[in-house]
Design a protein around this nucleic acid. Structure first.
Lengths: 107, 107
DNA sequence: CCTTCATATGCGTATATTAGCATGTTCGCA
DNA sequence: TGCGAACATGCTAATATACGCATATGAAGG
């Protein structure tokens, strides 16, 4: 199988931890559609700017996204394709699981 | 793109949250190789039994694993293939990212 | 330089997570 | 029925997270 050394597992767990928050996940999904600056995200997700910055910091630290200065703005984008892939897989998983359950079990 | 409703995103975030712990991830990876009872995991991962049970509970609640009584033991296995897939993707991601960095940056 | 827009940081607080230890509960078997 | 094995649960302390709010930094333009 894969390399399942403690370090690798730990790093993977950190990866999941960074994605384990609805707001951060929303940011990632947004960025998987198109790059955006903080203010774009603020308006799009309707969250206070400092909060978005905080979450962005977490995502940056986890190396899930990357920022590039563009005048006064900083344009963020996904660090690599794997990220979008993992997120999209999770959504698929959730959707399928949801479909399996009897109608109206998710509320 | 996918269905990115708040509910779906929230559910996906919970999925990641359940995977966002080295011990739980180790359990999942172990179970992705073969089904096992609690005591197997205890010995394999060298963790106190109550701790394993606790983590198993989290994974169960998140519907990532399923338990089947088998005499006095309860044999756990992954609830579905997606789980193993997502975990394996994360490991791959980590490994690749690691490969990109200058030698010896991960210690 | 001074102002303004874009983003980041600091701090306090409510809440969640993790782990360790002791104790229940359930099952199989003599 | 009584005992031991396999799991689960309860409780507590330590630590980490998410958030709101105020404020600081950095870049552009006049």
């Amino acid at each position: 199988m894969k390399d399942s050394s403690p370090e690798t597992i730990g790093a993977a767990a950190e990866l999941f931890k960074a994605m384990a928050n609805p707001r951060r996940l929303a940011i990632l999904l947004r960025l998987s559609e198109e790059r955006a600056c903080v203010h774009d995200l603020v308006r799009r997700l309707d969250l206070p700017q400092p909060l978005v910055s905080q979450h962005i910091r977490v995502l940056r630290t986890a190396r899930l996204i990357r920022g590039e200065r563009r005048g006064r703005e900083i344009v963020y984008s996904l660090a690599d394709h794997h990220v979008a892939h993992i997120a999209s897989d999770a959504l698929t998983h959730v959707a399928e699981e949801d479909a399996l359950r009897p109608t109206g079990t998710h509320t």
